[in-house]
């Protein structure tokens, strides 16, 4: 029986420095839970599906907050709120794609407290997984969504490997399109990995959506200058216009030279466990004139290899349409 809305007791730690957070992670090991804005964490706690011994609230760590320009681009602290990113003049001027994407997250109240690190790292929203059933993602032996009776209209078109859950982040596709780098730190050092390594599918790790290890903290997200000020487009389709996760979203960054597409990064969310980068489409449209025919071609070719489940076939034309619009309407 699943008890709702009553959290099991835990010890709350609120470190003010990263090194204190690392020592807490090292001492509690797998009994620790890292929490940023808390919008993902509190669901797990209230449903009593996750019962950590120690919750490490990271929001007091000042060095993980803020946006600053660097010679190579911009560094965003993982604890920077989505509202700060949405309204930051540097982001708005150079990386409008990210500002657009985070402005579509949930509601203003949630964006005021939710963080970019938490948004990118949030766990899958599959209703079976969230209900606490012993599915693959929860360490079990089955997928309840990919069955003849399974409710799977929100699930994957691509990359399903036993688990068919998708990423529900609006920020993740934009970060992937901007070729963001993720800084993961632990007591033993730091590593910097690209978005396509940071987000992991069920074929690699069926229990997690990111490559962050339990002892690591995502401290910073770096946006390279290579994509600053390019043509951008973000669009999200959900059942409700606010406070909802995407059915499908698209983030596109397109570099245009003399009216032709020089280079592009087009990423679709809500169709795979990871932000689904359309590298084949990018290759097809490279060098072509930025015109309606190219946009249509991009949309038509974007859904090749899609494997719909029983109830999510509608995502195929939706995705094709969003990709077409992204290529057609991307502006500087």
């Amino acid at each position: 029986m699943i008890v709702k809305d009553i959290m099991a007791p835990f010890e709350l730690y609120q470190p003010a420095q990263l090194k204190d957070a690392f020592s807490l992670l090292d001492s509690f090991g797998k009994d620790a839970w890292k929490m940023a804005g808390g919008y993902d964490s509190l669901d797990w706690f209230k449903d009593r599906i996750v019962r950590p011994q120690a919750v490490i609230d990271l929001t007091g760590i000042a060095e993980m907050k803020g946006i600053k320009e660097t010679p190579d681009g911009v560094e965003i602290g993982a604890l920077t709120t989505l509202s700060e990113i949405e309204n930051n003049p540097i982001i708005k001027a150079k990386y409008r794609l990210l500002a657009d994407a985070v402005s579509h997250v949930a509601s203003p109240q949630i964006r005021n407290h939710g963080t970019i690190g938490g948004n990118a790292s949030q766990n899958a929203r599959c209703l079976y997984f969230r209900y606490g059933l012993p599915c693959y993602r929860a360490g079990g032996n089955t997928c309840f969504a990919d069955t003849p009776e399974g409710i799977n209209r929100e699930h994957a078109l691509f990359g399903a490997d036993r688990c068919v859950a998708v990423t529900s982040s609006d920020g993740a596709p934009a970060l992937t399109a901007l070729d963001a780098k993720f800084v993961l730190q632990s007591s033993s050092g730091q590593r910097v990995i690209g978005a396509e390594e940071f987000f992991v599918g069920p074929n690699v790790d069926i229990l997690h959506l990111t490559a962050a290890k339990p002892e690591e903290i995502l401290t910073t997200i770096r946006l390279p200058s290579a994509w600053a000020g390019k043509n951008f487009y973000f669009e999200k389709v959900a059942d409700r216009n606010v406070w909802d996760f995407p059915l499908v979203n698209v983030a596109a960054a397109i570099s245009v030279q003399n009216g032709a597409i020089r280079e592009s990064r087009i990423v679709v969310g809500g169709v795979s466990a990871v932000p689904h980068r359309l590298t084949q489409v990018e290759g097809i449209i490279q060098g072509k004139a930025l015109e309606e025919g190219t946009a249509t071609l991009a949309g038509q070719s974007s859904t090749r290899d899609a494997r719909p489940l029983n109830y999510n076939g509608f995502k195929i034309p939706l995705m094709a349409s969003l990709v077409t619009r992204a290529v057609r309407n991307a502006t500087a």
Partner: peptide, 11 residues
């Protein structure tokens, strides 16, 4: 794990 029916099952 706890099954759909609330039973404790070996996985």
């Amino acid at each position: 794990a706890t099954s759909v029916y609330g039973d404790k099952v070996i996985i």
